[in-house]
Amino acid sequence: MKAEFNEQALLKGLAENDSKAIETIYKDNFNMVQAFIINNNGSYDEARDIFQEAMIALYEKAQSESFVLTCKINTYVYSICRRLWLKRLQQLGRYTNQVDSLEETVQVEEDLEIHEKRNADFNMMETAMNSLGEPCRSLIEGFYIKKMDMQSLSKEFGYTNADNAKTQKYKCLMRLKKLFFAQYNIGE
């Protein structure tokens, strides 16, 4: 019962981007995943990529309100990584015949589909941001990602007052929206 409680607390911490919770989950699961990937024709860099991808998928799952933990965190993380890695191997045209199947796994196909859809959206946002140009990009990043307030933003960028910075931010936002939806509508 206690272990289960701990796992719930960890997931809650992960959903809040709490560094302590992230480190704990990371420490408990990384070595297992790394060993699996290295033993199956992968490199250290690939192991890190796949593991972090799985952490993001877990984060997304932990954030949704309807989330229920039906298995242990390590089973879930391992299943995601296994699925992602087999897929990656297939894409790269590399094969392995000794995929380790001693670990318990759960069905994760649906979760991964949602995760991939989200990744596609993020990529569109990234592309839109990249084609925005400076200083628009930094302004938007400062406000929406780093969550800085208008006062310090105007100081950093050298605007004479916060109102001017705000107007500039709206102009940038409108351009970003245009860029984003242009891709979005093509993608749909």
Partner: peptide, 15 residues
């Protein structure tokens, strides 16, 4: 997008 960005940063730090 921002949350994803921040999480990636945290993961990097943890690693």
């Amino acid at each position: 997008f921002a949350a994803n960005h921040n999480l990636k940063h945290s993961l990097h730090l943890a690693h």
